[in-house]
C-alpha cells in the first residue's frame, strides 16, 4: 500500500464534502457534509501515523480527538438548527438573513 492512495481517497472525500457544504440549502444536510470532511481528515491522520511508523500512535490519538470534537460539534450544531427552526419555522440557510442589512 502506498501513502498516496490514502491521501487521494481522503482528498476525494474532502472535496465531495466541500461540494455538499456549498450546494445544500438545509442546515442539517450541511452538517452531514461537514461530517464527511472530518472523516477525510481522520483518514489522513491515521495514514500519516502509519507512514511515519510512530510507535506511540500519535496519529491515532489525534483521530480520536477529532472524533470527540466532531461529536461536540454535531450536538451544538443540531441544537442551534433546532433553535433557528423554532424561531423561523425553517432550517434553510439561505433564508437566514436577519444579520444582513
Amino acid at each position: 500500500m502506498t501513502i498516496a492512495q490514502f491521501l487521494v481517497l481522503s482528498a476525494a472525500l474532502f472535496s465531495i464534502g466541500i461540494y455538499g457544504v456549498l450546494v445544500r440549502r438545509n442546515a442539517v444536510l450541511v452538517l452531514l457534509s461537514v461530517e464527511l470532511m472530518l472523516a477525510a481528515v481522520n483518514i489522513n491522520f491515521v495514514a500519516f501515523g502509519r507512514y511515519f511508523a510512530d510507535s506511540a500512535a500519535g496519529g491515532q490519538v489525534f483521530a480520536l480527538f477529532i472524533i470527540t470534537v466532531a461529536a461536540a460539534e454535531v450536538g451544538i450544531g443540531l441544537a442551534i438548527v433546532l433553535l433557528i427552526f423554532r424561531n423561523r419555522a425553517s432550517a434553510n440557510i439561505d433564508e437566514l438573513d436577519v444579520l444582513k442589512w
Partner: peptide, 18 residues
C-alpha cells in the same frame, strides 16, 4: 480542491510504500 490536494500528494509522495 481535489486536483490541488490529490495532485500535490501524488507529486510529493509518488509511490512510497507504507
Amino acid at each position: 480542491t481535489f486536483a490541488v490536494l490529490a495532485g500535490s500528494a501524488v507529486a510529493f509522495f509518488g509511490d512510497e510504500e507504507i
